[in-house]
């Protein structure tokens, strides 16, 4: 039970490439929110991370969400936190840690969106380019 000490693995010195793949729209289901929590926790482990938006996942980062009338938490600001984590990873010269925020071009265009619609800076990659990135990952979560 939870009173017992947690079991831990020795992960010292291991650096892996994680992808957090977002394919679901926000608010209709909880998947978007809970995957964000995963991304933010992962920052403490200093791993490489690609936060990727594909299919309806691209709706997660559209500007201007207002959930007041739903009385639901508006978690858009958390994407800004991810953007800051990425900037920290980019700026940290002591730590070899690469974070990328990626949107698939085909998914974006299929929904009538452009990168100007997003609340954060993203890399827009074609399906073929993204397929190469996915293939290069060690762990893919979400999807």
């Amino acid at each position: 039970m939870s009173e017992e000490p947690d079991l831990h693995f020795d992960t010292e010195g291991i650096k892996k490439k994680f992808m957090f793949l977002n394919r679901k729209a926000p608010y209709g289901t909880v998947y978007a929110l809970e995957i964000l929590e995963m991304v933010l926790i992962s920052a403490a482990f200093e791993q490489h991370a690609c936060i990727t938006f594909v299919d309806d996942g691209v709706y997660q980062i559209v500007k201007g969400h207002d959930t007041k009338a739903l009385n639901m938490k508006n978690f858009s600001p958390m994407y800004g936190v991810i953007e800051m984590e990425k900037e920290d990873a980019d700026g940290d010269e002591d730590e070899d840690m690469v974070w990328r925020i990626i949107v698939e071009k085909e998914s974006m265009e299929a929904r009538g969106l452009t990168a100007d619609n997003f609340s954060i800076d993203v890399e827009v990659l074609s399906s073929a380019e993204l397929a190469d990135v996915i293939e290069d990952m060690d762990v893919v979560l979400g999807g």
Binding site: S2, D6, M38, I41, L141, G143
Partner: peptide, 22 residues
């Protein structure tokens, strides 16, 4: 047992394969 989300990232680092079911 109940523990933090860090335990997922940790096993992702430690394991040779991580398989997701959802």
């Amino acid at each position: 047992r109940i523990s933090g989300l860090g335990q997922l990232i940790e096993v992702g680092i430690a394991a040779d394969r991580t398989v997701m079911f959802g």
